[in-house]
Design a protein around this nucleic acid. Structure first.
Lengths: 355, 355
DNA sequence: GCCTGGCACTCCCGCGTGCCGACTGCCAAC
DNA sequence: GTTGGCAGTCGGCACGCGGGAGTGCCAGGC
């Protein structure tokens, strides 16, 4: 056993054994023993040798025994090594490609609906829980605002961004406002701000435009509020689907674990926290990312893994797709599915984006 | 044992026993025996007498025995009699009233968000699964349409109804369209249709308005599509929350039942079917309605009950709140909660409605 | 005629027991 | 370094047993 940087350096045979144990455990959900290994895979050595190797892999932290005299299952580090170095990358099957394409062909044009439909697609394909986070509204491009005169003292403000209508709100003023003022202000805002990224439009800039036209404070306030609502939402736009898939996995037959997952799914905030970490790297690094077990930093998710992959919307927008499932998940396939879906989502949003 | 219309007529004592059995079973989730009954409730007779009465209640179809020599649990008919004739009506506690009021005070102004927030509130209060169905878009009142010129060949159409923005869509034409035409058409549509119920606005009526202004076929088509999208949605707007509450109930520790529920919740269509029956009566009859076990006409829901209560939006709109839980649910409390929440939802939507 | 205490009977459920099978670790031999 | 053999460990399952809860029935009393 050679240790390099505190870690067991894996020779070729150890690597193959680790790979095979992970693969077998992912498929059977049963701890893997040395005899199973020699019988099902052509290793060229006897089970006794495998036992010695497996003992060393356990000492190195790659495998653990649920109890004495049981087979081994991978540890977080074992899965990590598998994902980073041992696993075969997979590509999408023809059938998957077709289903993804068909889904997006008839997908909605509204961002929040697209998000939901995508989670349903991805959970169906992956057989796990799928999560989708919409790009922050701050990064959408401003397209259009209309202040619609309803009565002398009320108006409807509609703000349109590159992702569609982002805010709509009825305003009421204590004094009469001329319909003409609203039209003039709408026109001025549209010509000066069109195409700007929402987070770059400052409230004082909005005030300046209104001041130039000598528009009263009440209306100015309304415009500021309308823009603010268009930018920020109480809750991040996020969707999840496929929780019932997890019931098929033996690790979730324990009700406590199941409850933990359901709680996470129903609370948008927790769901957001779960994948928000990745958003920062995501922008620079558009490749899939896997977090395994304790890497998720949540005790109730210690037996889960999450695959995340970012997607782009417009110039600056970054959203995220994720698959949550048991640690014992088919990483290769899920990474391929998440990437493929993210690519199609990219394209679809590109089509739907208002230019 | 007197049979009236094929049913056992309940004398006062039988009624009290049935009521007590249901009450006890709802609280303990354990089959109720004759001794428990005489010990916990002051019945004035011995357990042997109760046994005779319970045997008759079983013969009459109100109680069943899970197995020989166990206590009794209510049948669908037993619950039905309890709900219709025996149960004490309940009123909301101060605390519930306050929580409902607080929730709606800071509720969203957007219909689909209000729906979601309401399910979260109601599931939290009731400890069961809450469902909310938005009123059909057909019943909203038309308020405003704006055809927004983006480029000579593209425009954005926004339709606003009494529930807010209902459709937004970019149209592309093979030939140039004048910005002025779009404005004229928007104005004409607004002045002629304002306040009309969406389902009463016919496509040919839209065409007529465009024809009067000599507007081309491409634009006419766009207006028709914009109105059609505003009226109908691919899916009914429906939300559910609180599935994890059901995990606390012993009847859902069986994974098959749990899976059935989760599937129903995740498939909007099934969820809609579950409460849509009630929509038809709902309009005329604004009181809560309870369906128990097999009355739900779904094998996988044979051990569930649903409380539904309609709410109103605008002149013709009817939506629905529902609570789904085990048959063994606290009917009185849940009916009070659903009614109270529906009342507040009524009021809130009345405030938010665009007039 | 209704109510009651007593009694035999039934059935679920939890517990302890013992056995089987799977797997390991170790060792001596190759 | 590899191998077969062997003892040891542990989970899981079937089995049987007894306790407990509850019933139905019956004879006797009010």
């Amino acid at each position: 056993m050679r240790l390099v940087n505190d870690k067991l350096e894996l020779d070729k045979r150890k690597a193959f054994i680790l790979q095979t144990v992970v693969y077998e455990y992912i498929n059977t959900a049963e701890p893997v023993g040395s005899v199973t290994l020699t019988q099902k895979y052509n290793l060229g050595v006897s089970s006794a040798t495998i036992r010695n190797e497996m003992a060393e892999l356990e000492a190195g932290g790659y495998l653990v025994q649920p109890h004495t005299s049981s087979g081994r299952i991978p540890s977080d580090a074992g899965y990590r090594t598998y994902v980073d170095r041992l696993m075969q990358p997979e590509t999408l099957t023809k059938d998957d490609t077709r289903r993804i394409r068909d889904q997006f062909r008839e997908a909605s044009r509204e961002l929040s609906e697209v998000i939901e439909q995508t989670t349903r697609l991805l959970s169906g394909l992956s057989g796990n829980l799928a999560i989708a986070l919409a790009p922050s509204r701050d990064t959408h491009a401003f397209k259009y605002v209309q202040l619609i005169w309803l009565s002398p003292r009320t108006a409807l403000a509609v703000v349109v961004t590159s992702a569609g209508v982002a805010s709509q709100r009825v305003f009421e003023w204590p004094h009469d406002v001329a319909a003409d003022d609203l039209t003039r202000l709408s026109n001025a805002l549209n010509s000066k701000l069109s195409g700007r990224i929402m987070e770059d439009v400052t409230p004082s800039e909005l005030d300046d435009i209104a001041n130039e036209l000598a528009i009263g404070a009440g209306v100015r306030e309304a415009v500021r509020t309308a823009f603010a609502t268009a930018r920020q939402h109480d809750e991040p736009e996020i969707a999840a689907a496929g929780a019932q898939n997890l019931l098929d996995q033996p690790e979730f037959h324990d009700l406590r674990k199941l409850r933990a997952i359901l709680r996470i799914v129903e609370e948008q905030r927790t769901l957001y926290d779960l994948i928000a970490d990745e958003l920062n790297d995501g922008a620079g690094n558009p490749s899939p990312h896997v977090r395994i077990g304790h890497e998720l930093r949540a005790e109730e998710l210690a037996e889960c893994s999450v695959v995340t992959v970012p997607y782009r919307f417009g110039d600056r927008g970054v959203g995220m797709l994720a698959i949550l499932g048991p640690r014992r998940m088919p990483y290769g396939r899920l990474i391929a599915l998440a990437s493929g879906t993210a690519r199609s989502l990219d394209e679809h949003l590109n089509d739907v984006e208002i230019r």
